[in-house]
Amino acid sequence: MRVNDIDVAYDDKGGGTPVLLVHGHPFNRSMWRPQVERFSEVYRFIVPDLRGYGETRLPVDETGAVPDKTPLSAFADDLVALLDGLGLERVVLGGLSMGGQIAMEVHRAHPDRISAMILADTSPEADTPAGRRTRRAVAERLLREGLAPYADEVLDKMITPRNVRDLPEVAAHVLRMMRGTSPGGAAAALRGRAERPDYAESLAEVSVPVLVVVGAEDEYTPVEVVRDMHAVIPGSTLAIIDGAGHLPNLERPEAFNEVVGRFLAEVL
């Protein structure tokens, strides 16, 4: 679908209450396959590729150049425009990692479009100065080297080392997603993400049901960080997925789906 200045690739499966899931970095919409397969007989699942990821390209200007920075607000505006194009006023909005922060940005700017939220392995804090420098340095590295060396380096942080060994199909899927991501898209997102605001204040004003999920062994967003976010969000529900790192929806899909299914059944 053409939204704003890009053609958004997305899957739209099932019927009933719409659920929009936002992938993390540096992945694509296929990361949500276990959830779409599990729930699309009960709910309508919409899973897009963000601009610069998967099959959704960055916009190109009249000179053929692409933006060097994609702020979270641009991703959020794309999602709202996608909902408009689909004729949807409100959705359950979920996201993992960067996708969770994009969901927070949608809530900050367009709270009326959300009926419930699922925030997985994510945190609301703005980057520190050191964090901003690191993201910008990684962006330069990805442009210089491509995604393959980075993907190999971070695989056992995205999923636990044990799951790299014991779940080879999951590990291969995660590697394919990372290696297949556009360096320009990933770099632009990293630069934009480095400038994100702190979402704690807007999360404290959430008035819809929220499920907060985290892998028990997540190195990027440790359990204690996610517990702090849970404490900020009024009435939120916290679920910790044992045996999983940063991608519990892929590492422990049965446990993740059970938690999500219970939450959706209770709030919808």
Rank of each mutant, 00 (worst) to 15 (best):
D12M: 00
N249K: 04
R38H: 11
M1F: 14
A137H: 11
G100M: 00
E217P: 05
P129Q: 04
M1H: 08
N257Q: 05
P149R: 09
R165W: 06
M98T: 00
D121P: 00
R135H: 13
A171Q: 06
M229K: 08
L96E: 07
D127G: 02
E201P: 09
R135A: 12
D112H: 10
T63Q: 06
V42M: 08
E55C: 08
Y53G: 00
A204L: 02
P149M: 04
L167G: 02
S97E: 01
I114F: 04
I159H: 10
G215S: 11
M117K: 02
Y220F: 15
A130M: 08
V267E: 03
L72A: 03
R176I: 03
V106R: 09
M98R: 03
R135M: 02
G94I: 06
P124V: 00
M104N: 13
L167P: 09
G243N: 07
R165S: 14
G146Q: 01
V212M: 02
E153W: 14
V42I: 11
D228P: 06
F263A: 02
A244D: 04
P149D: 06
A9P: 03
P209V: 05
Y10K: 03
F75N: 01
G95Y: 03
G64N: 00
W32G: 08
A186W: 08
L72W: 01
E205G: 15
P59M: 05
R144E: 12
V92W: 01
V210Y: 06
D228H: 14
L268K: 05
E217I: 01
V8Q: 00
P197I: 10
D78L: 04
P197G: 05
D127F: 13
A265D: 14
R2Q: 14
L268Y: 04
R193A: 15
R108W: 15
A255V: 07
P129D: 06
L247V: 08
I240G: 02
G24E: 01
V206D: 07
G184F: 15
E201T: 10
G99K: 03
G52A: 03
T63H: 10
D12R: 07
L268D: 14
G215H: 04
G146A: 02
V47R: 05
A255S: 10
T237Q: 12
E169H: 11
G184H: 14
G54I: 09
S182K: 09
L20S: 01
L21K: 05
M104W: 08
E224Q: 12
V226S: 05
R38S: 12
K157D: 15
E41P: 03
Y10Q: 08
E140Q: 13
T63I: 12
S73M: 14
